[in-house]
């Protein structure tokens, strides 16, 4: 039932010598909300001054709490949000100034897997069609070729061709997420933004999907930007991890290094708050949190 022997390994050290695949520099994204009078809009920054790089074949984890701007960052890379300032360079090409219509070449190279597998598939189409439509969009005109590639993609993610004729509602959450992965990977992208890709799944299914992502990375050399709030999962899948708080990137580093030797106070708070995997030492952890809280309270009172 459970396999603990490692079959594959990410060859990250080798690839790190390459040029970065994606460079994000001083990125800011703004959003509008209703103001005091109907025609006035309030503008506020969701993220500001965010910089990081992703290398080929690497997985960069992006963690933070709700409202930290981690999803906004991912959406800016996917060009679902406009950047207000800063730059995003993909393989040396500036992405933020591409204009209204994103070139298909960028769409082919940068794909996404979203959190809620149920709503990320069109409920009115059989799931095979969403892979088919993707290929058609990218100029694969021969239906036979499309079918062959779709079948191959379904096979890659552990689904059979029978699943292609089902509606999303007829699949389990894990299976739906596999379809989303098939759609993302059928174009052989270089970067996939995984926005809370396993958060909606049960523990046992989470593991299956994470392993699948890792295996596909080993085969295709794709890079992941893995956005999640669950530190345990991020630690497991990431080579490096970036921590975001209130729109800013506060710390970035090698995964193990960040977990064992966190530099920023917020990272320490986050690690201290995330539940451990065994009961031992929980009283000490509770005491440490309490001390941390009292210290924080004292600080606010002083200020």
């Amino acid at each position: 039932m459970t396999t603990t022997t490692p079959n594959t390994s990410h060859e990250t050290e080798a690839s790190r010598a390459d040029e970065p695949l994606l460079v994000v520099e001083d990125l800011a994204v703004e959003y509008e909300s209703a103001g005091a009078v109907p025609w006035r809009r309030k503008v506020s920054r969701a993220i500001d001054g965010v910089s990081f790089e992703i290398f080929p074949g690497e997985t960069l984890g992006l963690v933070g709490e709700s409202g930290s701007g981690k999803s906004t960052t991912g959406r800016a890379i996917l060009r679902l949000n406009d950047a207000a300032a800063g730059s995003i360079r993909f393989q040396g090409t500036e992405v933020t100034t591409l204009g209204r219509r994103t070139p298909l070449s960028y769409r082919r190279d940068v794909q996404a897997i979203f959190q809620d597998p149920n709503s990320s598939l069109n409920p009115r189409h059989v799931v095979g069609r969403c892979v088919d439509d993707t290929l058609r969009t990218h100029g694969v005109t021969d239906p036979g070729e499309r079918r062959a590639r779709a079948e191959q993609a379904f096979d890659q993610v552990g689904l059979s061709t029978d699943h292609m004729h089902r509606f999303p509602a007829e699949l389990s959450g894990g299976q739906q997420q596999r379809v989303a992965i098939a759609r993302a990977l059928v174009l052989e992208p270089k970067l996939v933004v995984c926005d809370e890709a396993v958060s909606a799944l049960d523990l046992s299914t989470q593991g299956q999907i994470i392993n699948l992502l890792a295996d596909l990375q080993a085969i295709t050399g794709v890079s992941y930007l893995f956005i999640a709030h669950d530190l345990g999962i991020v630690r497991h899948i990431s080579d490096r991890i970036a921590v975001m708080q209130r729109g800013h990137l506060v710390e970035i580093g090698e995964a193990e290094e960040l977990f064992t030797n966190p530099q920023h106070a917020y990272t320490r708070k986050l690690l201290g708050a995330s539940p451990a995997s065994k009961p031992e030492g929980r009283d000490e952890r509770r005491a440490r949190r309490e001390a941390f809280r009292q210290m924080h309270e004292a600080e606010t009172q002083l200020a």
Binding site: T3, T205, G207
Partner: peptide, 28 residues
């Protein structure tokens, strides 16, 4: 119970750094 054991193994928060997460095949 084997299910308890499998759940514990599948917990990604475990300190043990393994490349592959143990999983429970199939679904509930």
């Amino acid at each position: 119970h084997p299910y308890t054991s499998a759940l514990l193994a599948a917990n990604p928060a475990s300190d043990a750094q393994v490349d592959r997460l143990p999983t429970i095949s199939g679904r509930v």
